[in-house]
Design a protein around this nucleic acid. Sequence first.
DNA 1: TATCTTTATTGTAATATCACGTTACAATTT
DNA 2: AAATTGTAACGTGATATTACAATAAAGATA
Lengths: 108, 108
Amino acid sequence: MGITKNHIFDDYQNETALITKVLGHPARVAIIQHISQHEYCNCNDLVKATGLAQPTVSQHLSEIKKIQLLKQKHQGKNTFYAIDLDILNQYRRKINDFFVKVQVNCQK
Amino acid sequence: MGITKNHIFDDYQNETALITKVLGHPARVAIIQHISQHEYCNCNDLVKATGLAQPTVSQHLSEIKKIQLLKQKHQGKNTFYAIDLDILNQYRRKINDFFVKVQVNCQK
DNA sequence: TATCTTTATTGTAATATCACGTTACAATTT
DNA sequence: AAATTGTAACGTGATATTACAATAAAGATA
């Protein structure tokens, strides 16, 4: 029905899916890369970097914000984005652990 | 337009997104977990394990198959699924490297 | 004040996804 | 041969996603 039955899955499964879903679009991968490579990166920089329209970039940014992966600093009319490294590292470990657990289970 | 502009992104970005997109649904996370935990796991086992209808499970399986993460062995009327550990490990490293690169870039 | 810049929001069209009933088909069992 | 079992494919409805034009809102600048 186009509606995911989250309630029939456990927290671990839902959280793993939530994180990877955000990474599951090339624009968001590109946005995360670009922010990591450029300090004081604002929305317009990302528009230029991706070639997408400003509302589209803004929409993708809000998806990334939903999982707390971004910090933003308002400076005058500008909004500068940065990666939250604590969260990033937390997610890196979480996703890596998922892969490792699957691997270990297979080898039992 | 609901249609992703893959052509404006590079291979690395598209491949990263392709892999994570498959993990971006709790049913597929659950299916991968269950297959890793049960040798000789067939479609019906996954139907029972997830609580989803058989066609739904079959559809999710085909998404996971698209990125070569599954091996299948036909035995009579049964089809047994297993994780392709080489591919899994390849993807684990790829996704982990993505996170690490972002982290390293931020710290420059 | 009027204008420009920057970002978020709203609305909308096109497409994709999720879920499942139905059907088809192959292999097994009776 | 007929019935049963297991899986994939087809079709479809409901919802979500992607993309963007238009607009709003807030701050900067002329």
